[in-house]
Design a protein around this nucleic acid. Sequence first.
RNA 1: UGGGCUAUGGUGUAAUGGUAGCACAAGACAUUUUGGUCGUCUUUGUCCUGGUUCGAACCCGGGUAGCCCAACCA
Length: 608
Amino acid sequence: MAEIETTISSEKSLNFIEKRIKEDLAEGKNGGRLQTRFPPEPNGYLHIGHAKAIAMDFGVAKKFGGVCNLRMDDTNPQKEDMEYVRAIEKDIKWLGFEWGRVCYASDYFQDLWDFAEWCIIKGRAYVDEQSSEVIAAQKGSPTEAGTESPFRNRPTEESLALFREMNSGRVEPGKMILRAKIDMANPNMHFRDPIMYRVLNMEHWRTGNKWNAYPMYDFTHGQSDYLEGVTHSICTLEFVPHRDLYDLFVTWMKEWHDEIGKTEVVCNVPVGGNIEDNRPRQFEFNKLNLNYTLMSKRNLLILTKEGVVSGWDDPRMPTICGIRRRGYSPEAILKFIDKIGYTTFDALNDIKLMEAACREDLNLRALRVSAVVDPVKLVIDNYPEGEVEDLEAINNPELRDADNNIVRVGNTHTIRFARELYIEREDFMLDGGKKFMRLGPGKEVRLKNAYIISCSDERDAEGNFKCVEFDADGNIACIHATYDVESKSGMPGADRKIKGKTLHWVACDYCVPAEVREYQCLWTCENPRDAIKQYEQEYGVRGIEAMRPFINKDSLRVNRNAFIEQWAACLPALSYLQFQRIGYYNVDTDSTPEHPVFNRTVGLRESK
RNA sequence: UGGGCUAUGGUGUAAUGGUAGCACAAGACAUUUUGGUCGUCUUUGUCCUGGUUCGAACCCGGGUAGCCCAACCA
């Protein structure tokens, strides 16, 4: 099959961060280098929101000749796990990106510790022994200044000794923390003596039992960037209030490095020279919000634990692995992300745009197959019993070569035709009326890749149409038609115009039963996050109980009555298909040739 | 209510002082061996209000609305 190329944003204007990077590079900031990082916390699976960050972090590095590292932000051992690291790596690769190196914040625990001691010695940090409640109360409110801790001005030596004690394992969590001495009256709450270290007394999945006290995000992120030689630290908008603190800690660390004479950092990037030029800077863009979708890892975890979905990779989940299993291609996801862009506006994106991007990509990628999802039997009365024909079917009419010509040679498969077929139940109506362009008494249609057929409008003595047989329940059990022998596809007789549409079909004896899973949005409201939050406040319930009222109970429909062309049942998992006239489907990861399972990725666009 | 950020058709996004453009959605037409794709067309917009300017979506003032910040999470 021909290689499909999709161009992403080559002609689009640069987004505001790309513009900024371009300027920085032109001005020779950070020595003219570009280094970014994608910093997930390995405490869950990546979702489509992360894909947006990935496309940005790795994307700009690729675009401007820089490097992007993958950094596990593993400063909280109580939530993190190796399982997630593997999944994160897999998802990023699947999206088509490459990192320079894999880093771990935990690799910098010693640097961070030494730096923290230096901060204490410089009188910029102190050990606080108050309870978290007291500290929270002393923090004040957005409108009132905080009050200083009684431990704020304790002797440096005392803080230093207690800080070391914090890592001994003898201090109970919650009894002591290390705080930065900044400004308890600052209008920015993050400056009111933020916590640098807390005691967890917990084994870390990478550093084992070496540490009992662990650094907080704010005391880790900027420094990790700095130590790795990151130039542009790109994150989402909710970190804007952290930026000044980020800059402060990075500046302190630079000062510390200058003082101890450290000349290079992890990536062999020189740290000497102009401070301005070597500090990483934080840039923020809007995070991805999708309507009818719940994005937060915390809530996705609840859905998996409560069995609302089958797992992180349930095709209804907004996780990368879920979307993959649903049948999206990486290119489709990237195309969508490119369409929504990066701004500083808190947008709520329409899921329809994602589906449109998906169709656009899958139209080029998907193999066309015939599948009948809701079958009814059709007998071609004048077709000889026992006879079969192998007909040619085009795999993908949109596949084009380098000159944009439609490529068909070699891109076909055969489909077997016989006297007894299945067609879609909805493609036949006894009283369809003039606008119904499909099959019915007195109507003529074309069978895709095969013959023109028609149903007789003759009636029996009781006035019933002769072309249909009913079962005991009054449902149509069988339709009878006749075919035009001269109208086989490719023959001159096939060229005649007919009123009816072209129907898809499978031959009863040459198709296989298949399970087809159809999906709807998991949520019944546009903005489930807000709806859940409001419900929590109103009724005082939390978690799954607050989610239930908004969960779409009909989000999964399993159809075990479908039939599909035989060869399609043997396609490998995650193959991109189009069930002709129905939609885009994907071979499920649990599909087998004996029991083929297909997931509907997205329906075809329908114009009525 | 303190600080920070934001506001362009229904949705998302361009235009950085000089013709408000694009995509999706919606609707119509045409073509078609997929009611798909491709093609053509239509509808709908600069939050309000002052100011600066020959000229404002863009700059400034004042409103209004929304988002983020008071975790020993990230």
